[in-house]
Design a protein around this nucleic acid. Structure first.
Length: 933
RNA sequence: GGGCCUAUAGCUCAGCUCAGGUUAGAGCGCACGCCUGAUAAGCGUGAGGUCGGAGGUUCGAAUCCUCCUAGGCCCA
């Protein structure tokens, strides 16, 4: 007969193949239909709040692996915190305003800047953002992310726009905002100022010219007298520049006060250069070493003047620390209107912020010689003029790193414009921000250092943009005396309008309709006011999200427990949020900051179209399922860069199958188990089962700790390892005989099932934040009554199964002895070929005194090693028995494996002495009893 | 060019930042073998690392210091 029918084989509908790609949407549907996330929150309505505040992705384009990684990490936190007993309302957001969308929209409409009225563009931008919000929302949902998808926050919501304006006014009113001409990155193509974040660097070909600034008579005299030299030939200060077009704006020449300068004679002319550059210059200019005429202390020259190389005016000699010896002549041409450092040092010397170039990069008509030319045309013309005047020493071209506009990819320039700034100093914003950093917890710890040094060094925040898709800088100015209205009372009406209609009206209504009736200038009594035209930097929009979201939405609270973004956000959102919050509330908007790295390919290189190594989330979802993406996010240590490759994915797929299959085996063997009545109390369990449960409680401990410390890769590895070792390779393999062959109700079988029950119950909950789809799949297939309709409505297990230290040690020794026996058995099978399966083996062992005690229970070891016979004997002789295995790990341990003579029980396949001697010759005693003779 | 970070077996990670100390661990993959009552499964054994490189401190360094190389983020 076929004894198979008498066994308790596993039974389950839970499929081995997950078919994730097809089945994931069904779980998404289930979660949505059953409102699982809402129920989670409802269930924890009185639990302590945990606020993870979503950093808004830009509402443009599809999601990529970086955004997917970010949202999955957040989801793992939302779910794990919730299952650890917190209430975690997660409101997703989108950043909607800004140049990229405005440019895209113009492109789609086929128009250029300014060709359409602001409201038309704004309307189109709004539609564009909406479109991508919907796309991205679906993509995020597909990842299995739980959130308030139906009520996200959008920076273009009317109420949000009103908040942005209000928060700006707080800065204005508190005296932290000023307007000043200042060089900023300026894109002449897009005709706008750019934020630092909107500029990218790349190689660029520029001129490389050496220009002569003639000494004034006064300077000649001074040097002649002071240094006892006769300047019988023309004398010049020599400078090097890559931007000839900035020469018309030159107002000064800067020397480093710490360098020595030389007056040298080359051919028939005198030049002033830094001593440290002379030999370098000779090489570059292909000249012989010059004759040194005098060594000059730059401090003596401060305040002296040269002539401009082609205009009839002078250029002031000044001192500046930033002048270096790396390139050029050690003397820097200063144009305060066209460079940040130039501007800074210009302020110190009281230089004018002179800008002869208009918004589109053309010289103003009234500029001599080059009026009306673009800066590129001017480059050529200036070279010509310099040559003509004999003031061009050398001209060449070089390739170097240069800033480009992140949208149009064209080179940008530095150009001073009237801009609005939030001051880092006026009200001590920098100091307050630095102090606030001290109060924040950083994960990893070095984030603190990074944010700190950025705040320490950053310039004032230029918040104005000359565009329309954004929130206006709500400032009224008296048309007569130019007084700015700073008091909030002048703006209450506008804010109210914004709340109801958004900020469109600002662009079309006259000032008097936006101001409270009867407003008069507090300074001069005038009644006519003008509106500011610029809009706010988008970083300000997202920077005030704490005010628009955390403070406004009832379920949330300020400050947040956690902000979680990529490491670039130290200069982005982490930074702007901190400034906005500290500047208006005096405290940081977050208690902790968590940073992750960037997604790179298998070789650690960044993903780029040009390298052709880009992987899209969609590729992985349609091939493996979103679950694999979630595993990837959890398995990798996000503090470093996060690698992804085909090999990494295939390892994840295999790990996934292992976990799934292990759970499937547990499910299949619990089909007749009712925890209510069949559960064996821990104290009554046999030692091995107890040990496994002890290991399970250690796992639970580690996993919870892993979640708490945001170390998800440890969670992943620990759970995976537990499935492989403790479950699959140990108790499942060893106790399989009990499950299949012992009577259903037997103690041995119920004891094993008890372990399975605890293991399955724990694992399904512990993996849920990561393996969300699969945990739900398992939950829906549990063979016993479920406590909740979804695994997400449960909490992490808190079983504690303790063993004494001695008992744990004992088991560790038993397991290492087991490894020795397995080695011996494997050698007997593979090398000596005396057995083919361990079930056929007889094991004889000679043991050292200290472990004899552990090896004396023959039937335990027969069960534990799954062998036919186990026997400890006094002495084994490797000489007479050359097949004896001598342990290296455990000195004195010798093992001899022999094939058994016992016959195989046809039911349980174990070899037993009594097989053949019972009424049923095919069976062993146990099986004979079980099948009832 | 500057700031911060990373570099341990083919892959993913432990160990290492603020305590330096036995032959550097795990799982997967790979090779070989077993099983065929988890079966597009399962079990076993084995081979893989001069801890990115070079110096230094120390009786002793994957762990501390310096420099270099490669890569990432941010800035110029």
């Amino acid at each position: 007969m076929d004894w198979k029918d008498t066994l308790n084989l596993p039974q389950t509908e839970f499929p081995m193949k997950a078919n994730l790609v097809e089945r994931e949407p069904k779980f998404l549907e289930f979660w949505e239909k059953e409102k699982i996330y809402e129920k989670m929150l409802e269930k924890r309505k009185d639990a302590p709040l945990y606020i993870l505040h979503d950093g808004p992705p830009y509402a443009n384009g599809n999601i990529h692996l970086g955004t997917a990684l970010n949202k999955i990490l957040k989801d793992i936190i939302v779910k794990s915190k919730m299952m650890a007993g917190y209430k975690v309302p997660f409101v997703p957001g989108w950043d909607c305003h800004g140049l990229p969308i405005e440019l895209k929209t113009e492109q789609e409409l086929g128009v250029k800047r300014g060709e359409l009225p602001p409201l038309t563009i704004r309307e189109a931008c709004r539609k564009y953002a909406e479109r991508y919000i919907n796309i991205q929302r679906e993509e995020f949902k597909r990842l299995g992310v739980f959130a308030f998808w139906d009520k996200p926050y959008l920076t273009m919501d009317y109420r949000y726009e009103a908040t942005i304006a209000r928060e700006f006014l707080r800065f204005l009113e508190s005296g932290q905002v000023y307007r000043r001409k200042k060089p900023v990155f300026w894109c002449p193509t897009c005709v706008t100022a750019l934020a630092e974040a909107e500029v990218e660097y790349g190689p660029h070909k520029s001129y490389s010219i050496f220009v002569k600034f003639p000494f004034t008579e006064e300077l000649k005299d001074f040097i002649s007298k002071e240094y006892q030299v006769t300047l019988d030939k023309p004398a010049y200060v020599l400078i090097w520049t890559t931007t000839p077009w900035t020469l018309p704006a030159n107002l000064a020449l800067a020397l480093n006060p710490d360098f020595d300068y030389l007056l040298v004679k080359w051919e028939d002319e005198y030049y002033l250069v830094a001593e440290g550059r002379v030999s370098g210059l000779c090489a570059e200019l292909n000249k012989d070493l010059p004759k040194i005429v005098a060594k000059i202390d730059p401090k003596n020259l401060e305040g002296k003047k040269t002539l401009h190389p082609f205009y009839n005016r002078e250029s002031l000699i000044i001192l500046a620390d930033f002048v270096s010896l790396e390139t050029g002549t050690g003397i820097v041409h200063i144009a305060p209107g066209h460079g940040e450092e130039d501007y800074q040092v210009g302020l110190k010397y009281g230089l004018e912020v002179y800008v002869p170039v208009d918004q589109e990069g053309r010289f103003y008509k009234e500029v001599d010689l080059i009026g009306g030319l673009s800066i590129y045309q001017a480059n050529e013309k200036i070279l010509e003029i310099l040559k003509q005047k004999g003031h061009l020493l050398s001209s060449d071209k070089i390739e170097h790193s240069y800033p480009f506009c992140w949208r149009c990819k064209k080179p940008v320039i530095f150009r001073a414009e009237d801009q609005w700034f939030i001051s880092m100093e006026l009200k001590g914003l920098r100091e307050k921000a630095l102090q606030a950093v001290e109060k924040v917890k950083f994960i990893p710890y070095w984030g603190k250092n990074r944010l700190y040094s950025m705040l320490e060094n950053r310039p004032d925040w230029c918040v104005s943009r000359q565009r329309v898709w954004g929130v206006p800088i709500t400032v009224f100015k008296c048309e007569k005396c130019e007084e700015i209205l700073r008091d909030f009372k002048y703006y209450e009406k506008v804010i109210e309008i914004f709340e109801k209609e958004g900020c469109d009206p600002w662009f079309v209504k006259p000032a008097e309709e936006l101001l409270p009736e009867g407003t008069v200038c507090p300074n001069c009594g005038h009644t006519q006011f003008s509106k500011e035209k610029d809009i706010l930097d988008v970083w300000f929009d997202s920077g005030v999200s704490f005010a628009a979201v955390l403070e406004k939405i009832e379920e949330l609270s300020f400050p947040a427990d956690l902000y979680l973004e990529g490491s670039d956000q130290h200069r982005g959102w982490f930074h702007s949020s901190l400034l906005c919050s500290v500047g208006t509330r005096g405290v940081p908007p977050y208690k902790a900051l968590l940073t992750h790295g960037f997604v790179v390919d298998g070789q650690g290189r960044k993903m780029s179209k040009s390298l052709g190594n880009v992987i899209h989330p969609q590729d992985i979802i349609t091939k493996h399922g979103a679950e694999i993406l979630r595993l990837w996010v959890s398995a990798e240590d996000y503090r470093d860069d996060i690698k992804i490759s085909k090999e990494i994915l295939s390892r994840l797929v295999e790990a996934y199958r292992k976990v799934r299959n292990t759970c499937r085996f547990l499910i299949g063997n619990l089909y007749d188990f009712d925890p209510k009545k069949d559960l064996v109390p821990f104290e009554k369990l046999p030692p091995f089962e107890k040990y496994i449960l002890y290991r399970l409680s250690r796992l639970i401990e580690k996993v919870k700790k892993g979640y708490e410390g945001f170390e998800f890769h440890l969670v992943y590895h620990e759970i995976y390892r537990f499935c492989v070792i403790e479950l699959s390779s140990l108790i499942i393999d060893i106790n399989r005989d009990y499950l299949y062959c012992e009577p259903r109700e037997s103690f041995k079988r119920r004891a094993t099932q008890t372990v399975f029950y605890y293991a399955l119950d724990s694992i399904v909950k512990l993996i849920a934040p990561i393996f969300s789809f699969t945990a739900e799949d398992i939950w829906q297939n549990l063979p016993y009554p479920k406590e909740e309709i979804s695994v997400f409505l449960t909490e992490f297990p808190d079983y504690r199964f303790d063993l004494s230290q001695d008992e744990v040690k004992r088991w560790e020794t038993i397991l290492s002895l087991r490894e020795e026996f397995l080695k011996a058995l494997e050698i007997a099978r593979k090398d000596h070929k005396v057995i083919s399966t361990f079930l056929e083996a007889e094991v004889y062992v000679e043991a050292p005194e200290d472990i004899k005690e552990l090896l004396k229970d023959n039937s335990f070891w027969e069960y534990f090693l799954m062998v036919a016979k186990f026997k400890m004997i006094e002495a084994l002789d490797p000489v007479s028995e050359p097949q004896t295995f001598v342990s290296e790990e455990t000195p004195g341990l010798k093992i001899l494996v022999k094939p058994t003579e016992y016959k195989k029980c046809e039911r349980c396949w174990q070899r037993k002495p009594e097989v053949g001697r019972l009424p049923n010759p095919e069976l062993c005693e146990r099986c004979y009893q079980v099948v009832g003779g």
